[in-house]
Simulated assay, not measured.
Amino acid sequence: MSQERVTVVSGGSRGIGAAICRRLAADGHHLVIGYRADHASAEAVASDVRQAGRRCLTVPMDVADEAAVDRLFDTAAGLGPVTGLVNNAGVSGPNGRLADADAEGMRRALEVNVLGYLLCARRAIRDMNRNGTGGAIVSISSTAATLGSPGQYVHYAAAKAAVDAMTTGLAKEVAAEGIRVNCVAPGTVWTAFHEDPERPAKVARIIPMGRAGRPEEIAGAVSWLLSDDASYTTGAVLRVSGGL
């Protein structure tokens, strides 16, 4: 790929998103990091990206806000034509049985995990087509999309199933435009996402590989899907879950 890679990562300040940013920087991407509120963490990741020799900008924003998404991509244009998007921002919403879940918490989870991904993908496609660059989109789903997460967050699982469906349909819609759309579905990973910080250790017994994953293992899959090595891959949902 002769052109420079400029990739937008939503939710890039912590956890899997931060690992993705660091890996992409090592693999030659300039980055624009969207984050919700943790400015210090976003700047720490940006500092690591710059130390790897890449340019990086950070943008506070809410992916469920159309104007904020436009601001994110307008900022990214300052680094050059956008060639990649990683849809990573996500929230779990209420934890527990669906019968006990509050509507506002579920609504927010759907807005971030579904509408936010759609808004970011829409803008990325518009920019890639206008610039004539083509490009690649990778969304972060979850094994919850197929396992259902009963007793934990069925609404979150439903949102991630929507991400899988979006990947399938959008990949077909824009393939002829030189844009690839794929998805990574992590299993349980050691991050601060979990309400119970020991949950990854507790669920390890049901994972065939006997352990939870590391954010860096998800980042490697994302980097591959954005790379030229995946040039014939689109519409894929790549499960990175230790066999579960």
Rank of each mutant, 00 (worst) to 15 (best):
M1H: 13
V8W: 00
V9P: 05
G11R: 04
G11M: 03
R14N: 13
A19D: 08
R22L: 02
R23A: 09
L24A: 05
D27N: 11
H30K: 00
V32Q: 07
G34D: 14
R36C: 04
D38C: 02
V49A: 11
L57N: 02
T58K: 06
V59R: 14
V59W: 03
D65M: 04
D65Y: 07
V69T: 06
R71I: 00
F73S: 03
D74A: 15
A76Y: 01
T83Y: 06
G84S: 07
N87H: 10
N95V: 15
D100C: 01
D100S: 11
D102A: 01
A103M: 08
E104W: 01
E104I: 01
G105F: 05
G105Q: 05
M106W: 06
A109V: 00
N113E: 05
L115S: 13
L119D: 04
R122C: 07
R123V: 13
I125H: 12
N129C: 13
N129M: 07
N131S: 15
N131A: 15
G132A: 09
G132T: 04
G134N: 09
A136G: 10
I137A: 12
V138L: 12
T143I: 15
A145V: 02
A145K: 07
T146I: 10
G148D: 09
S149Q: 04
S149Y: 14
P150M: 01
G151R: 11
Q152N: 03
A159M: 02
A161W: 02
A162H: 06
V163S: 11
M166H: 08
T167I: 09
L170K: 13
V174L: 08
V174C: 05
A175T: 03
E177F: 05
G178K: 13
G178E: 13
R180T: 05
N182R: 11
C183Y: 10
A185I: 10
P186R: 13
V189W: 07
V189F: 10
A192F: 00
E198F: 01
E198K: 14
K202P: 02
V203G: 12
A204V: 04
A212V: 09
P215H: 12
G220L: 06
A221M: 08
S223L: 04
W224H: 13
L226W: 11
L226G: 14
A230K: 06
A230L: 07
S231A: 15
Y232F: 15
L238W: 14
L238C: 10
L238M: 14
V240A: 09
S241L: 00
G242F: 03
G242R: 07
G243V: 07
